[in-house]
Amino acid sequence: MNTPPIVIYTKFGCGYCFRAKRLLESKGVEFTEHDITLGGTKRDEMLARAPNARTVPQIFIGNTHVGGSDELAALDHAGTLDTMLAGG
């Protein structure tokens, strides 16, 4: 499987972030997590990639902005998440 890079922006203590990470882990894929609890350059990076994002997590698969935990779960439920993770 040629998984595109997966990036997830999170905050400490966020249940939705935990749920999204658990789903990705269950798929056996690696991801890069950026904790933006204290703001900083990674928060600015997240907002540059998703200008209207005001909540976490914010998830990107390759260059595709998935959205948050609910959107990630919906993709999995629809059967399209595995295809995205496979680079399709």
Rank of each mutant, 00 (worst) to 15 (best):
Q58R: 08
K21Q: 07
D35N: 11
I59S: 07
C17W: 11
P4K: 06
E33W: 11
P57R: 00
G62Y: 01
E71R: 03
L81Y: 04
M46D: 07
S26W: 07
G79K: 00
V66D: 00
C17L: 04
E33C: 12
D35P: 05
R49T: 03
T32K: 15
G79T: 01
D70P: 06
G68A: 03
F31E: 05
A53L: 10
A48W: 08
F31C: 06
T80F: 06
I6T: 05
T83H: 13
A74H: 08
R49H: 12
A78N: 14
T41L: 14
A50R: 02
L85V: 02
K11M: 12
G39V: 06
E71T: 01
P57T: 00
E45F: 04
K42T: 13
P4G: 01
D44T: 14
V66H: 02
V29H: 04
G28P: 03
L75K: 00
G40C: 09
G87N: 09
K42P: 14
E30L: 13
L47P: 10
D35Y: 04
N2D: 12
E30H: 14
L85P: 01
M46R: 06
G40P: 13
L47E: 14
G28S: 03
L47T: 13
A73R: 15
G13L: 06
T64D: 08
L75E: 00
S69I: 07
H34N: 05
F60I: 03
S26R: 13
G15C: 09
S26D: 10
G15N: 05
Y9P: 08
F12W: 15
T80G: 13
H77V: 12
P51H: 05
M1D: 13
Y16F: 11
R22Q: 09
A50C: 10
